[in-house]
């Protein structure tokens, strides 16, 4: 059973990711991205990382994707449906893509992967919280400061100063 569900989720993720890249309309690509993000959230669940899955949905679907679609809709005339994006410089693109692929293949081969436990852990959130508050407190605070700075900057820029 898990294999079947896993296959289904992988198919959704890869299929929609292909549509994101291949789509001729920008908005269709953005909508296909919705299914990709959702599929990735499903993959997290297979690794017992349900908190990560929910974070993935909140941040990527609820935040970034909405922002992306807003951006697409606001930068064009609302009546024009044909927002196309075409590929330029295919030769260089293929080269870059192949080098990234070979790099990834090498990395996947060399990384010592952690084995997934067969049983669901009793608590999936506690560990993340403890690590963030104890071991990685400084990076966590630096990241929140960065976000605060971005927030204040956005508020400054969008403000109408008379």
């Amino acid at each position: 059973m898990p294999d079947f569900a896993f296959g289904l989720i992988v198919a959704i993720t890869l299929g929609s990711a292909f549509m994101v890249v291949q789509g001729k309309q920008l908005l269709y690509s953005a909508i296909a991205l919705l299914f990709t993000f959702f599929g990735v959230a499903g993959l997290y669940i297979f690794m017992w990382a349900d908190f990560m899955a929910a974070v993935q949905i909140v941040i990527y679907i609820g935040g970034i994707l909405v922002l992306l679609i807003f951006g697409i809709m606001l930068t064009n005339k609302i009546t024009s449906v044909n927002i196309s994006h075409t590929s330029l410089q295919r030769g260089a693109g293929v080269l870059v893509a192949l080098s990234v692929l070979s790099f990834l293949v090498v990395m996947i081969g060399r990384t010592p992967w952690l084995e997934k436990t067969a049983l669901e852990p009793a608590q999936t959130v506690d560990g993340i919280g403890t690590l963030l508050m104890m071991k990685y407190l400084l990076p966590f605070e630096v990241a929140s400061l960065l976000l605060l700075g971005a927030l204040i900057g956005a508020a400054m820029l969008s403000r109408n100063v008379d």
Partner: peptide
Amino acid sequence: AVSSLGVI
């Protein structure tokens, strides 16, 4: 989390 799907 899933309630943010409705927005899209």
